[in-house]
C-alpha cells in the first residue's frame, strides 16, 4: 500500500499562487476559502534576512489529531495515508478544526468540514494533484514515501528538509526542502 507525501522545494517556489488557483478550480472550492495557500516566512536581522516561500496545505499527518477527535468517524485516513472527510458523516461540530495545529480545515458553506484531499480523484486515475501539475517552477513533488525509487523519497534522501510544527507530534507528510 502506498504512503503518499508531498515535497515542496522552497528553493524553487516563487509564491506565484498558481497552486492555489489550480486547487480552487479543480475542486470547486467556494469563494472566500482555500485548501492551499502561500506563506512567506522571514527570519534574521536586517540586512541578513532569509525568506522561505512555502506552498502549504493539510499535512495529511500520520498521527492525525483531526481523525482522533472526530466523534462520528467522518474524518478518516484513506488508503495511501490521505486524510479525508466523509461529507455524509460530518455534523459540522468543528472539533477537527480545533484539533488541527495547521488551521488547514474550514467549514464549507454547505455545512460539512472541507480540506485538501491530495486530489485523490486524480491520484486514483494515476494523475498528480492539480497543484503539483500546474506548478510553473516544478517545486511541488508528489509520490510514495514507501517506494525508495520515487521522486519524493529520492529528494528527501538527498536534500535537507523540514516539516511544520514537528513538536506537535502529528508526523506531517508535507516536507519542505531547504
Amino acid at each position: 500500500m502506498p504512503r503518499y507525501a508531498m515535497v515542496v522545494d522552497t528553493q524553487r517556489c516563487v509564491g506565484c499562487a498558481d497552486c492555489v488557483v489550480a486547487c480552487k478550480t479543480e475542486n470547486n472550492v467556494p469563494d472566500g476559502f482555500c485548501r492551499d495557500w502561500i506563506v512567506q516566512d522571514v527570519t534574521g536581522v536586517f540586512p541578513a534576512l532569509h525568506m522561505e516561500i512555502r506552498s502549504e496545505r493539510c499535512n495529511h499527518c500520520e498521527n492525525a489529531p483531526c481523525v482522533r477527535c472526530c466523534p462520528t468517524g467522518a474524518s478518516y485516513i484513506e488508503e495511501g495515508g490521505i486524510v479525508l472527510v466523509d461529507h455524509d458523516k460530518c455534523t459540522g461540530c468543528k472539533a477537527c478544526i480545533a484539533a488541527c495545529p495547521y488551521d488547514a480545515r474550514y467549514v464549507h458553506p454547505e455545512g460539512y468540514v472541507d480540506k485538501c484531499t491530495f486530489c485523490i480523484h486524480r491520484v486514483k486515475e494515476g494523475l498528480e494533484p492539480a497543484c503539483v501539475e500546474v506548478c510553473p517552477t516544478r517545486c511541488l513533488h508528489f509520490g510514495d514515501l514507501d517506494d525508495p525509487n520515487s521522486e519524493v523519497s529520492r529528494l528527501l534522501k538527498t536534500r535537507h528538509h523540514h516539516t511544520l510544527i514537528p513538536e506537535a507530534g502529528t508526523e506531517p507528510k508535507i516536507f519542505f526542502l531547504t
Binding site: 502561500i38 506563506v39 516566512d41 480545533a98 488551521d103
Partner: peptide, 23 residues
C-alpha cells in the same frame, strides 16, 4: 525577527486570523 505572512490572500470565515469556530 521571525515574521510569517500569508501572501495568497487567506481570510477564511471562522478560521482567520484566529479561530472563532465556537461562539
Amino acid at each position: 525577527m521571525h515574521e510569517v505572512t500569508i501572501t495568497s490572500g487567506r481570510n477564511m470565515h471562522l478560521i482567520d486570523p484566529y479561530l472563532t469556530i465556537w461562539g
